Computed example of a mutant assay.
Amino acid sequence: MARYDFHAITITQITQTAGVSRVSFYRNFSSKEDILIKALRSDIEQHFYRTAQSGQLTNHRELFMAIFAFVEQKGGIVDLLYQNDLSHIFLAFIRECCGAKPESDNHTAYHHSLNMGVCFGALDEWIRRGRQGTAAEMADKVAQALATILAKW
């Protein structure tokens, strides 16, 4: 995406560059977008695993801190998504990571959707504004906003 317009990149180019067959590609991915989502998902799982191992995921603020820090760390790919008008891929990634799951009861699903919506909304604006403010500042703001919303829920 740094060299070519995302929409112009073909599955054939991807498979030739990766040295895999189209069959292998479609065995693992459903689309070009799916590659990006799964790559980000793999990276964030490693990031969260390290963060959780350090005992830093005990409340909403720490969860948001981990997400904003991850985006700071992966700024290059996130910027490419936004520069290529692909923020919907970033939203799909956030939804997959922390959105509602089909097996969840309604209360849990709505709670997860609310967390995801607040988180994505803040992340989206933060990214569009050039990531002004630190991850910690943003995590504080989002956690405070969510606490206010949940208190009224």
Rank of each mutant, 00 (worst) to 15 (best):
G133W: 10
D105Y: 06
I89C: 12
A139M: 10
E137R: 05
A135E: 00
D79V: 06
F90I: 03
Q83P: 07
F120N: 01
K101E: 02
A8D: 02
G99P: 13
A139V: 04
I127Y: 05
D85L: 13
V78G: 03
W126R: 08
F68L: 15
K74W: 11
S87K: 11
M1H: 10
P102S: 07
I127P: 10
T58Q: 09
F120W: 00
A139L: 04
L86C: 11
C119E: 07
I94H: 07
T51K: 13
Q46P: 12
A66T: 11
Y49D: 13
Q73K: 12
Q46E: 15
Q144A: 09
S30A: 10
N115C: 00
T15S: 01
A100V: 12
A151S: 09
H111A: 11
A147Q: 15
L123Q: 01
L81N: 00
Q132W: 07
R128T: 07
C97D: 10
A143W: 06
V23T: 07
E45P: 00
R95K: 08
V142P: 15
S21A: 01
G76L: 14
S30L: 09
E62W: 05
A143F: 08
S31M: 15
K32F: 02
P102C: 09
A100R: 14
L36F: 02
M1S: 11
I9H: 04
V142Q: 01
N59L: 12
A18Y: 03
D5M: 13
L86H: 11
E45A: 05
I127F: 05
F25D: 02
T58C: 05
A2K: 12
D124I: 06
A8H: 03
I11F: 08
R128N: 01
E62S: 01
Y82H: 05
T108S: 04
R128A: 00
N59K: 11
E33S: 00
T58N: 09
M116N: 05
K101R: 08
A2W: 08
D124Y: 05
R22Q: 03
I37S: 08
K74T: 14
A139C: 07
Q132F: 10
A66K: 05
D43N: 02
C119P: 04
D34R: 09
K152E: 10
E45F: 00
M138S: 06
V142T: 06
A136R: 08
N59D: 15
Y82D: 05
T51F: 14
S87W: 03
E103A: 07
D5V: 15
C119Y: 02
L57I: 03
W153H: 08
A143E: 09
T108V: 07
I14S: 01
F25C: 00
A122M: 07
F70E: 01
T17M: 03
L36M: 12
E96C: 11
L123S: 05
L91R: 04
R27A: 06
A136M: 07
R131A: 06
V23R: 04
G117I: 02
T148A: 14
A109V: 14
L40N: 04
N84Q: 02
Q83V: 11
G75I: 12
A8L: 05
H107I: 11
M1Q: 10
R50M: 09
G130H: 07
A39L: 15
Q73D: 08
H112Q: 15
D140H: 13
I37C: 12
K38M: 02
R131D: 00
K38W: 03
D124M: 07
D34T: 12
G19F: 09
